[in-house]
Simulated scan of single mutants.
Amino acid sequence: MSGGIARGRLAEERKQMAQESPPWFCCKARDSTRWFDEFTDWEGGYYPLTMHFSEEYPSKPPKCKFPAGFFHPNVYPSGTVCLSILNEDCDWRPAITVKQILVGIQDLLDQPNAADPAQTEGYHLFIQDTAEYKRRVRLQAKQYPATI
């Protein structure tokens, strides 16, 4: 991204997020965004999420990816997050902020969308074997230990 509206908007959003973010949230520009949530099966993890913003942001949504192979019904095997607000042909609106995207992804982790699966194994376990699904989520949290 070389400048213009996208760069200014992101700078302003980052500044605002630094002032308002909860203690479990960490954001590094030009690196990745990571967080861990407490009191869920995801607790204890520090999950790397890369957000790629084109020069067309905020007209077009960022591309959001976890590492390839990330276990979740709404994350493609490539790591790309499947969330309607990240789809410019679906629910994306230029008024959606980075913070709203991150909260949406966090909500998706805790409450998968069974109507829009992106990953066969995660989807089947979520639907058919809740205990095994939760075990895999807790196992994944150990793969990404919190470092803060």
Rank of each mutant, 00 (worst) to 15 (best):
K28H: 06
W42V: 04
E13D: 02
T40R: 04
W35I: 10
Y76V: 10
A18K: 14
R34W: 08
D37W: 12
P62V: 01
L10I: 12
Y57D: 04
Y76P: 09
D41A: 07
G44L: 01
E55T: 00
A18E: 09
S21A: 14
W42M: 00
K15P: 02
T40G: 04
T50E: 09
K60C: 07
Q16T: 15
Y76W: 10
F36R: 12
A68S: 11
K60I: 05
W42P: 07
R30Y: 03
P22L: 12
E38T: 15
P61Q: 06
S32H: 11
G8A: 11
P58V: 04
S54R: 10
E55K: 05
M51L: 14
E43F: 06
A68H: 06
M51K: 04
K28P: 03
Y46R: 12
A29T: 14
E43V: 01
K15W: 03
L10F: 08
T33Q: 09
E20W: 07
Y57E: 01
G45H: 02
C26Y: 14
T40C: 03
R34M: 11
K65L: 12
R30V: 06
F36Q: 09
P61K: 00
E43Y: 08
R7W: 07
D37H: 11
E38N: 13
P73K: 03
W24E: 08
R9I: 05
F70D: 04
F71W: 05
P22I: 13
F36C: 03
